[in-house]
Amino acid sequence: MKEYDEETQKVLIDRLCAAIGRLDSYFGKYKLGQVTTDLTNGYVTHRAGKTVEGRKGGRVGGKGGSRRDLETLRAAIGHHAKQNLHHGIVHIAMPEKGASRERWLTRSEAARLLWICWRYQEEQTIHRGTNKGIKIKTEKYTLRHVAKFLLIGLYTGTRAASIASASIHKAPGKAYVDLDEGLYYRKRIGHRATNKKQPTMPIPDRLLAHMRRWVDKRIVASHFVEWNGLPVKSVKTGMASAVEKAGLDLSEGNVTPHTLRHTAATWLMQQGVELWQASGYLGMSEKTLIDNYGHHHPDYMRDAASLITQKRKITRSKLGRRVA
């Protein structure tokens, strides 16, 4: 937990406690030796019919939620075994992983979202007088911090936590942006490297110009994404509001902060960027890039598509035999 800020730690602890509560209500009456495949499969069905507290619209849990709960149970059993508190193997049957999210933004969608975030003004309702009930726009641009988050996410494909911690100052717990050299040190200072790769990257010229202007005009105090002069913990609420106001099509999936990473990877592939450069830029393995975004690359299976229609080439050897 030490790799996360205080707010994120609280969210993760709350989620863990909720998962433990659900697991206990189902598995609590059983002993470890009674955990069978049928029992764990039954939990998936049990979980799917339950309304999840805090879920928007009172939605019920699905296979993804039950899988995450069972992963928590598996980790707990593994820890129990490492402490030599039980001997033998207890297998936890897992439901299949759901399909990965592939929602990404077209350039027109991104432009629409940015326009809404930068131009949107807070509205207030008049409560007295002849104009009672009329809404008027204030001088507060309440989504501009989301616009900056969007620009950084779209142009760099950086994870949300590193964007939120991006600062003009070198300090523990912050990702550092060197505006002189044009480099973005995405791994937060003092944090150890994890499997979530966060390599240092060159900042694209257009984004670098924006960042320098934000600092010059004192739009930025210390962090590039701020609300009332303070760094934000999350832009989920603001981004959800912006997506609604922009009227984006959500039939192919919701648009979240992580969608920006999908979008950056997709745009790089559509531009035909070499795999090793794109994977290094995003902090993503080449395999993950190919498996999830490779089909957007202009060279994707082009040789196969062109050769499939050609006749087989026949040549003759010196002996006059036909050679394929």
Rank of each mutant, 00 (worst) to 15 (best):
L268N: 08
T259K: 04
S251R: 06
R261T: 15
A240G: 12
S234N: 15
A246G: 09
A265R: 07
H262Y: 07
H223K: 05
H223G: 05
L260A: 10
V235M: 03
E252C: 09
L268F: 08
H223I: 10
K233I: 13
H258C: 13
A264T: 07
L260K: 12
W227Q: 08
P257T: 10
L260H: 11
N228G: 08
E252W: 06
K233F: 14
L250Y: 04
V243R: 00
L230P: 00
Q271L: 13
A264F: 05
W227S: 09
H223D: 07
N228C: 10
H262C: 04
E252M: 02
K233L: 11
V232N: 05
H223A: 01
H258E: 14
P257L: 10
K245E: 09
F224T: 00
L248I: 03
M239Y: 02
V243M: 00
W267S: 10
T237R: 15
N228D: 15
V243A: 01
E252T: 14
S251Q: 09
Q270K: 13
H258P: 11
F224Q: 03
V232G: 05
V235R: 07
S234D: 15
E252Y: 11
P257V: 13
V273Q: 03
H223C: 15
M239I: 02
T259Q: 01
R261P: 13
G272T: 05
L230A: 13
M239F: 10
A242L: 03
Q271R: 12
A240T: 11
T256S: 15
V232L: 14
V225R: 02
W227P: 01
T237I: 04
K236Y: 15
N228S: 11
H223N: 13
V273D: 02
V232Y: 00
L230S: 13
L250S: 02
K236N: 13
V273W: 01
H262N: 15
S241C: 07
E244Q: 14
N254V: 14
S234R: 14
S234E: 10
H223Y: 11
